[in-house]
Amino acid sequence: MYETIRYEVRDRVAWLTLHRPDKLNAFTEQMNKEIIAALKQVSVDEEVRCLVITGAGRSFCSGEDLGGVTEEMNHGEVLRTRYAPMMKLLHRLEKPVVAAVNGVAAGAGMSLALACDFRLASEKASFIEAFIHVGLIPDAGNLYYLPRLVGHAKALELAVFGEKITAKDAKEIGLVTSVIPEHLWDEEVHRFAQRLANMPTKAIGLIKRYLRESWNCTFEDYLEKEAHGQRIAGLTEDHQEGVRAFFEKRQPVFKGK
């Protein structure tokens, strides 16, 4: 069904693999569209309780395929029509999203990783704000997420100089959750995704929603929003189960509802 990506659901985890390994998984218009379709599937499929985005072959994603860039290209239109819809869907997805960064994440590929909730980096992974080297600015939401992750000063430094960030450096500046040794990569990524998929999904979605809200409102408004969020969480089956398990002194079994 998909040509530029692979999509499959296993044990409540959706695996979205960027699949143009000979092109370092660079974005094309078709790939944007296929990712959008897959993200829609993730959001409506009640069985899916965690999404992992990764790349086939030796890189995560090298950004926009420069093979398609022409002199007449209107960069603003490309973002509006291809990238913005994809990034909006990802932004609104109320399920945990993991970027399993298996190799280089450059340009919009790095943006994609930044838009995820967690970044796991392989030892071989690296991040590059490649845009400046062709006289452009980081796009696809990049400059929105970056300062929120690493702070304004560091974000500026990374965006302006566009130097390669190794997995180890990325961990140091808070860009990735953990760096995983090569020989443990598959196992650890699976373990991480599975752990998320067994958690109270609705509560995770609400945490994402209200954490995001916190950037856009006053403290007083936030407290009211928080009351709404907790009211919603308080109505979930998983909350009931959590409380029950606590009193029965056993591990809770969450359903994501």
Binding site: R209, K225, H228, G229, R231, I232, L235
Partner: peptide
Amino acid sequence: VVAPELLLEE
């Protein structure tokens, strides 16, 4: 503007 889950309740 209210969270969708709580529109009617609010």
